[in-house]
Design a protein around this nucleic acid. Sequence first.
DNA 1: TCTAAACTTGACTATTTTACTATGGTATAT
DNA 2: ATATACCATAGTAAAATAGTCAAGTTTAGA
Lengths: 141, 141
Amino acid sequence: MKLSTKGRYAVMALADIAKFDDNNPVSLRDISLRQGISLLYLEQIFSMLKKNQIVESVRGSNGGYKLTKSPDQIKISNIFSAVQENIKTVGCKKESKKGCNGKSAKCITHNLWDELELHINEFFNKKNLSDLVKGKNENRV
Amino acid sequence: MKLSTKGRYAVMALADIAKFDDNNPVSLRDISLRQGISLLYLEQIFSMLKKNQIVESVRGSNGGYKLTKSPDQIKISNIFSAVQENIKTVGCKKESKKGCNGKSAKCITHNLWDELELHINEFFNKKNLSDLVKGKNENRV
DNA sequence: TCTAAACTTGACTATTTTACTATGGTATAT
DNA sequence: ATATACCATAGTAAAATAGTCAAGTTTAGA
Ligand code: FES
Ligand code: FES
């Protein structure tokens, strides 16, 4: 069970904007250099973030991206759902009545994984971007 | 971010033993049939569970596996560490001083992912096998 | 004693997912 | 003009997952 780079980079990049934004758009090139993330990969991620109104873009020279809301209004769960970093703990289709083994009932562990998913989502709902920027101390990049 | 079958099956199989065990060993064949898990895959998983003293084996005809402890003493975290279903949320090496981007300091999101890992482990430490078996009602397999 | 059930081990492989890269654009400040 | 930066789609190498295969050993019971 691991977090993929897509979600990790998305949060990292947005935290970077939140930190360096002085109301000017921040270019992906700068984020790429500061955070050490591939520029082309960032473009892909930001296309999703834009589609989901997490950021807005400014095209052309001196352009870049800005947050659409203040950092404390952007929850990790919003970011993750935008880039489709979704957590899946159950083995079955949620909507289906069938279990993960193809049988007609949900398996013996189904409820446990469901609770786990809830537990994790709780964390993502409670954390937002400003939680990351507040703690900007010397020990971080 | 998803839970892999290895961990899911391990818990499912052990819950099966906890449920059907009347002090006789339970064969992998039976578990395979009841839970719809590949027998060969189960063998692989149980080899790890045995090495870590979660189960003990009885060889030969009418053999199978038994839990080494009572279900309420077997935590999900014990099972997961046995089958190496480990959760990894950070992008960097925990022990290293370097960040996930190869830079000399931990990245801006590092603490967040670390907290997440703690939060998830808390869940696995608090749940045990008996939590699964207690709730054996008609709606489950 | 024979045999079938069941555990044991290690190597091997197909599939899927992840983590990008490549290409070829369009828009705009200077 | 032109450099900078966003935009979009397709492709691909590497890693992880989810198994399978082969060749055993052990032991209960007929
Ligand atoms: S996880 Fe939902 S039925 Fe097994
Ligand atoms: S996750 Fe640890 S440094 Fe980025």
